[in-house]
């Protein structure tokens, strides 16, 4: 043990709190270490001085005041607790808090759901309104207004009788070839719909716009629609068909048959 270890144990050594072995070691060290011996003698001196000091009595009124305040505090707590101890109060408060939180969450979830349902309903209403506005309000001279109306119809991606009727009208009777093309392109999205395929086959033999004819031939041939063969043959035989459309129809017929 070095001097620092010895110094930390000196108080215990004086109080006789150490085991024999440590005590012997300290005594052995104190025999040859003057610094530690001095330290020990100083501590002894201090102890003696403390033990020789006069005892000071506590003033009586201090104790009385403390007891009075303690009694007051006890009464105050009693007044608010209604006979329930503090830990029970805490538990009740926590339960109420959890209940309110749960209730609020429930209300929020329910109102959120209602909100979503309402938004969905509004979206549907807006979509039908857009369709109605698009059909009735567009400028009859504007090609892009008509195309926009067809695009709105396409937004829902559902084939309704209204949608089919409007696209059919545009495809068969609109005097603008670009509007007819847009109607054809809108119909091409419903490849799996039987009615749409029949409509396109019917259109092929009555269509007089070469660009639209080419677009429909390409779509029907890509879809491997064998029922289109008759319409293609009609186009090939018809004198009025554009020569390039005839060639395209002929190539398509070879693919189908």
């Amino acid at each position: 043990m070095n001097c620092n270890d010895i110094k930390s144990l000196l108080l215990d050594y004086l109080d006789n709190n150490l085991d024999k072995k440590t005590k012997l070691e300290i005594e052995k060290h104190l025999d040859h270490c003057k610094i530690c011996s001095n330290e020990l003698s100083q501590i002894r001196l201090l102890n003696e001085k403390i033990s020789n000091m006069n005892k000071i009595e506590n003033p009586r009124h201090l104790f009385d005041t403390f007891m009075l305040n303690l009694e007051k505090e006890k009464n105050r707590l009693k007044k608010w607790s209604f006979g329930i101890n503090s830990s029970s109060l805490f538990r009740i408060a926590a339960s109420i808090l959890i209940f309110i939180t749960g209730l609020l969450t429930g209300v929020l979830v329910v109102t959120g759901y209602l909100e979503k349902t309402r938004i969905k309903k509004m979206e549907n209403e807006i979509s039908s309104l857009k369709n109605a506005v698009a059909i009735t309000m567009f400028n009859p001279h504007s090609t892009s207004d008509k195309i926009k109306a067809l695009t709105y119809f396409n937004e829902n991606n559902k084939v309704s009788p209204d949608l089919l009727r409007s696209l059919e009208n545009a495809l068969f009777f609109d005097d603008n070839v670009n509007v007819r093309l847009a109607a054809a392109n809108a119909l091409f999205r419903y490849r799996d719909n039987e009615q749409v395929m029949e409509l396109l086959i019917k259109c092929l033999s009555s269509q007089d716009e070469p660009m639209v004819q080419i677009a429909i031939i390409k779509f029907l041939v890509d879809s491997r629609e064998k029922r289109a063969a008759e319409s293609l043959q009609y186009l090939i035989k018809n004198d009025d068909t554009n020569i390039i459309v005839k060639e395209y129809a002929d190539q398509g017929l070879h693919v189908l048959l």
Partner: peptide, 27 residues
């Protein structure tokens, strides 16, 4: 907005900006 269709020829379009009210199609 543009609505363009043609059988033969090349199309070269340099937009100042694309009209955001109505769709455009080139075929």
């Amino acid at each position: 907005p543009l609505a363009i269709s043609a059988f033969y020829g090349d199309v070269n379009i340099d937009f100042l900006r694309l009209n955001q009210d109505n769709p455009s199609q080139i075929e």
